[in-house]
Design a protein around this nucleic acid. Structure first.
Lengths: 131, 131, 131, 131
DNA sequence: TTTT
DNA sequence: TTTT
């Protein structure tokens, strides 16, 4: 019913951009999200796979690289599949709805994450609120 | 850059549905969101104003009433305005992106919250992932 | 840095309650979180593993059962391990910080969700998981 | 029941640090959170008041200044009060549970965000706010 | 492997 | 398998 994930972390390497047979862009990358433990504990991270679709996939591939800091908003998806050895496996990945770039782009000031979801962003005028 | 609010609470009364001059539906209601304090403290709630636009506004008006339990996902919006006495005021409201009904509807089993944001929900086939 | 997951879904069966060798309660259960697709698509769900620690683990075990509706707030944790066949696997689970009961308890009106911070911050050893 | 806010934005000025009569640190600052609209629309922001308690309040006061980029996780709180002219007003603020510094600190590499749970759960009196 |  |  509700499935919301919000992460801030750094890319472990360049995004991997591909296209489905029907021509839709998909990018994948892994986010290192540091855990915060007591100081004496080893610094650890969760390495979380991110999937981005369509135009945002291409923007991520164009502007993101290893070490870049991003905020990802999406949903947690659990997929079952058989690997190359025929072993049944489960894959967890966050399907990104929005990716925000939190440090400066390498070659440009570009910003990803066109957000098309909010009512107030679809172009009607909020000054015209009837309350 | 990121502005995400997730609330679970109960409507304090029926939603108020109106239309902008350009014909767009807007519903408003207030959510009572209980705080969790130590047992000895008064039980209190935050009363948070919710704004819903377009088709979801009408679904909320049709199916929600006083006391109904909902989950709201949206963004926090701060608006400045002058009240009827000419006093400058700030209004805080959560602009809902999705409203989920968490208990049974009074007159129907209807469900609001058509979600149009996620890539995987826009109709391409995830079995066709090129990874 | 930031790792936040919020889910609403139904338990697929009773929680499994165990204790670490040092006597700390841990409960596990799976949440079925329905995806929302276009009407013509199969209704599907993500089946997401939840881990709960300490007092909340016992509250969940006492009051939750198959089909119960809950809201879970926590963080996404990726663990690597070797399964019984010696195959390296990754497990994804949501470590719950709070579990809210959204429908009536079977035998009582009890409410869980005492917020004590993350299990992993109170000093017990997560390598000591009895699963 | 659930009241979760996650924001990323920039401080509009230095945090204002005070102490309650019982000696508890409280910091307040305003976060400018850019909205994302269609390109032709004015760039706008929501200016959201943040309250931080205890040790994090002092860390924020020590390390944050105007323009700094932070992620705030907290809950939305609506307070009613009478202003200096005796006019009843409502104030909305986000009570921060965690503040993460997303760009480099001015004078140090310090990191805030020790997670101690909500201020309001540790027993001090929120009516005793020195603002 | 699965919930309503 | 991994980021700063």
């Amino acid at each position: 019913m509700l499935n919301k994930v919000i992460l801030i972390g750094r890319l472990t390497k360049e995004p991997d951009l591909r296209y489905t047979t029907s021509g839709i862009a998909v990018a994948k990358f892994t986010l290192a999200v540091d855990r915060r433990f007591s100081k004496d504990r080893e610094k650890e991270a969760d390495f979380i796979d991110i999937v981005v679709w369509q135009k945002q996939a291409e923007t991520c591939a164009n502007y993101l690289g290893k070490g870049r800091l991003v905020a990802v908003e999406g949903r947690l998806q659990i997929r079952s599949y058989d690997d190359s050895q025929g072993i049944r496996r489960k894959a967890a990945e966050v399907v990104a709805e929005n990716v925000r770039f939190l440090d400066r782009a390498k070659e440009s000031g570009a910003v990803a994450g066109e957000n098309q979801g909010y009512g107030s962003e679809i172009g009607f005028n909020e000054d015209d609120i009837p309350f």
